[in-house]
Nucleic acid binder design. Structure first.
Length: 670
DNA sequence: AGCACGCCGACT
DNA sequence: GTCGGCGTGCTC
């Protein structure tokens, strides 16, 4: 006879505690799935064992007994421990954390294993010998793996420097040591090449692929293949970090800077943090790779939290493209009001004559509108937060989405007095129309989320581009992600300003990454490519240093700014979103929390908590939303989490008419 | 969140 | 007398 503390699979926040049951089976273990009677009606519910006790912690008037143990879905102690950590870190429910680790589907009826990637041919491998640089970088990784010590590496390698080969060698070393490896990629649908290379090298029997397009049954099969121990390598998007492996020796995160590693659904976890947590248990190695590491990541590598390794030369010595920045203010002065500058137009003509392909980058349609002067490039920014102000048409005000500062938008530019004040954010969709008008004979195709909603059309468009059937491809970030095109002579970035002025402290970082990635698409064949960046603020450091391909210079500038403004990595930003049926209730809840947080802080660090404000799109699905931002100083994360946890706990007791959603270091601020 | 219990009004 | 309305409070 044992006593077990279980987390019950129930939607409610009110039942998000561990319940004690008796258990007849002495063999019961932490992590096992059990069925328990719950509530007045003793309805049978699924639950997971978090603790096994010899004696109950207290006397229970009516102790109930667990019914049976499900042997097929049981987790390990390590996983349960990670769930406890996730609950605290992301303020989610026990069961939300557990569900990350369990397969949503059920066992396939026929018991026959489906193979979701059997059509993926393993790419024939002629194993190339490593360059001296690759050898140098691999040595410490191999050593860490063979010593079985928890270490963390950041591999900073320019595009085309052979990072994937380094990953594969590290994975091979890990398998040699009898352990398993996880390979995370930002977006599985665009990374077919990586999967094929891995299957070619390691064979498909020992590889499992996890991604969102798998059916529930397929996912379940992959999950049980992994748990049974026959899988040695798991490749997948961020959720693959939850793979039920028992001896993780290595987790690789390719394109570490990508925002897709942060979940936007509950629990709002960060795959890097989860990987670190798990690897500490397993004494495994973390390997982050990127050509443009996130500023926070690079900062940590300077602090020694990550050991930095560098690959500086491109694999087959292809020269980096020639990058130039076009000042759109000059175009304006010269009377060219089109979205395409004269220089870009000429470069396009030249490329078409030479039968080279062209990619034009169009940043995600700005959902927020920033205000700028077309004559001098001045952009309206918050005096306190340094981020771009967003124009709110309904009240005709320019508003800061971080702190709520607002002002009346100027009619003439405060810097140069020009009346050409422009409200940016829309209009970029017109690029396709303009380009078709300019180059009637060329074949033009657009690739973005609108055109690729239909399944398979991404691949269709990319394939016809590869075959040379498209002359000009107009696309969003989608095109930039690690795709290899041979005949691209010219890459044009229509407006670097759109990314630069997203109201987010990371917008310079994103701009730098976007330009660098885009530039990497040009001239990967034998000829040097050309990159043209259009901007109204060409003197901006992110644009300038990206054009010069100077990562370190950018980092030095950016990290100083972050320190000065107190942004990550010098703080953690916590976003709270309050939703309710009426505006008053949402506002009331937000203001109530604001006061309570301030008093919990004991009057200190008042400047860290911003006043709540109505969310820009304040009404979604019949719910009114208010949001509030907290800038949690470095080293105070635990204290702030505890305040929020206590508040959440206290609110749980009373009947609430609102919901709170917590996001730690969100990737977008609403 | 569910779900049972309970304490009032309209009904065979 | 009883069927059922939803308000209230608890779940090991």
């Amino acid at each position: 006879m044992k006593y077990i503390n279980v987390a019950i699979d129930n939607k409610s926040e009110h039942t998000d505690t561990l319940y004690t049951y008796g258990c007849e089976d002495d063999q019961v273990q932490v992590g096992q799935k059990v069925y328990v009677p719950f509530g007045l009606g003793d309805k049978v519910r699924e639950a997971y064992v978090f603790q096994v006790l010899e004696e109950p912690e207290q006397e229970y008037k009516k102790l109930k007994f667990a019914e049976k143990i499900d042997e097929e879905v049981s987790l390990t102690e390590e996983i349960i421990d990670t769930c406890m950590w996730m609950k605290r870190r992301y303020l989610c429910k026990y069961i939300d954390a557990v569900k990350c680790f369990t397969p949503a589907g059920s066992r396939s009826k026929r018991g026959k294993e489906r193979n979701p990637y059997k059509d993926a041919e393993g790419e024939a491998q002629n194993i190339l010998s490593l360059t001296a640089e690759q050898e140098r970088v691999l040595a410490p990784i191999r050593q860490a793996i063979s010593e079985g010590r928890h270490r963390r590496f950041l591999l900073h390698g320019v595009t085309g420097s052979g990072k994937t080969e380094v990953y594969m060698r590290a994975v091979a070393k890990c398998l040699e040591e009898g352990r398993q490896a996880v390979m995370l990629v930002p977006e599985i649908s665009l990374t077919k090449q990586i999967i094929e290379r891995f299957i070619g090298r390691f064979g498909s029997d020992s590889i499992a692929v996890l991604h969102s397009r798998l059916s529930l049954g397929e996912r379940y099969d992959e999950w049980s293949r992994i748990r049974s121990g026959q899988v040695k390598i798991v490749i997948g998007a961020r959720s693959a970090v939850f793979a039920p492996l028992s001896q993780i020796g290595l987790v690789v995160l390719d394109e570490e800077h990508e925002t897709t590693y942060k979940s936007d659904m509950t629990p709002k976890y960060d795959a890097v943090e989860v990987a670190l947590k798990r690897l500490q248990h397993h004494d495994g190695v973390l390997l982050l790779g990127s050509a443009t590491p996130g500023v926070a990541t690079y900062f940590r590598s300077c602090q020694g939290i990550y050991e930095r390794l560098e690959l500086t030369s491109r694999y087959n010595q292809v020269a980096l493209p020639q990058v130039s920045v076009v000042d759109m203010r000059d175009e304006m002065k010269a009377g060219n009001r089109s979205i395409i500058s004269r220089q870009l137009y000429e470069a396009m003509e030249t490329a078409l004559e030479k039968k080279q392909q062209i990619i034009l980058f169009l940043n995600r349609r700005g959902y927020s509108t920033f205000i700028s002067c077309r004559e001098c490039g001045k952009v309206l920014k918050c005096p306190d937060c340094g981020i771009s102000l967003t124009y709110h048409k309904d009240k005709n005000r320019a508003v800061c989405h971080y702190c709520g500062y607002e002002e009346k938008p100027p009619e003439i530019c405060p810097d140069c007095g020009s009346r050409y004040i422009r409200y940016f954010g829309t209009g970029t969709e017109k690029v396709e129309e303009t380009v078709r008008g300019f180059f009637e004979k060329a074949s033009v195709e657009r690739l973005d989320l609108d055109t690729t909603k239909r399944k398979g059309s991404i691949e269709r468009i990319l394939n016809s581009f590869k075959k040379g059937k498209i002359d000009i491809l107009i696309g969003t970030q989608l095109v930039a992600k690690g795709l290899d095109f041979k005949n691209v002579g010219l890459v044009g970035i229509i407006s670097a300003d759109v990314t630069l002025n997203i109201p987010d402290f990371r917008s310079p970082e994103r701009t730098f990454q976007m330009i660098t990635q885009a530039a990497g698409r040009a001239g990967r064949g034998d000829e040097t490519g050309t990159v043209i960046i259009q901007s109204y603020t060409p003197e901006n450091y992110a644009v300038q240093l990206a054009a010069e391909q100077d990562y370190k210079g950018f980092y030095e500038t950016e990290i100083q700014l972050r320190q000065y403004m107190g942004y990550p990595p010098y703080s953690d930003l916590i976003q709270l979103v309050f939703a309710s049926k009426t505006e008053e209730k949402a506002k009331g809840a937000a203001e109530n929390w604001y006061e309570k947080i301030l008093s919990a802080l004991g009057g200190e660090e008042k400047e860290c908590v911003f006043r709540p404000q109505a969310a820009p799109m304040s009404k979604i699905k019949e719910q009114y939303r208010y949001c509030m931002l907290i800038k949690c100083p470095q080293g105070k994360r635990r204290a702030y989490s505890e305040i929020l946890e206590t508040l959440k706990e206290a609110e749980k007791i009373k009947k609430k008419d609102y919901t709170v959603n917590v996001d730690i270091n969100p990737y977008s601020f609403i």
